[in-house]
Amino acid sequence: MFRSLLFIPGNNPSMIQNADVFNSDGIIFDLEDSVDINEKDNARNLVNNYLSSANNYPSLVVLRVNPIDTEFFKKDIELIKTKKINYILLPKTTMDALNVLEEMLYDIEVKFDLDTVKVIALVESAKSIIQIFKIAKHCRVEAILLGAEDLCNDLEIDRSNEGNEILFARSRVIYACASNNIISIDTPNTNIDDELLLREDCLNAKNLGMKAKSSIHPSQLEIINEVFSPSKKEIIWAKRVLEAVEKNIGKGAFSLDGKMIDKPIILKAQKIIQKANKYNME
């Protein structure tokens, strides 16, 4: 369970040395788009040595590798040997790409006696949006991240502040994840100076059913965490529901404040409390 993931360029020592203090639930060390093609080796060495020798690490470590059809992919994947990586973020995920990754991860895990590394599928093409229900079922995949910038390039359309052009893709991600009990992660908002727009974007995604959002700047984390956490009002309501459950043991349904409480409502309350506990909220 997580609400926020922050992208950090893999070749930026200043950001990497602060990776454990940013207010995000996880850090994505990026070896792909934020790294110049001539600095791929430098970024890989830096992230590798950081993960191998730093004193403190983020609680959740994600590595965005380069796509499978690049010369960098195989060397990037070798970084799982550090034993610090929780998730590989696979760019341009398709079933073919996922199967190639699966084979490589399995070989390295067996050879070096490593725990199974899970995958976050980055879906950012029309093909991946079409294949998304198969991707979501893959045994390695524990989350799906929507990459709207590349998707819009693929569709030859512009991004808008309202995001109507990605409604179909967002909905596919949300339903594929919800039906497979994995985490849906919304695309980052690239307008890093517009807090109002970020909040609207987060609320829109959350209200559709997204469970987390990625970010490209630390300044976005406070709003993302706030929006994707249960509100105080929700927590109070959930506590009251669960207290009422204790007083109504044996009843399939009962009334609270004039509203019917039954299994779906109780499950909703339990999820809110679970999240509140996870994020240390009272």
Partner: peptide
Amino acid sequence: GALDYTIKSRLISAIKRMTLDV
């Protein structure tokens, strides 16, 4: 003001670039 792992990383990259083993 680089930390140890950054210095080590840059040195490894420079050596590999010198030997063209990138």
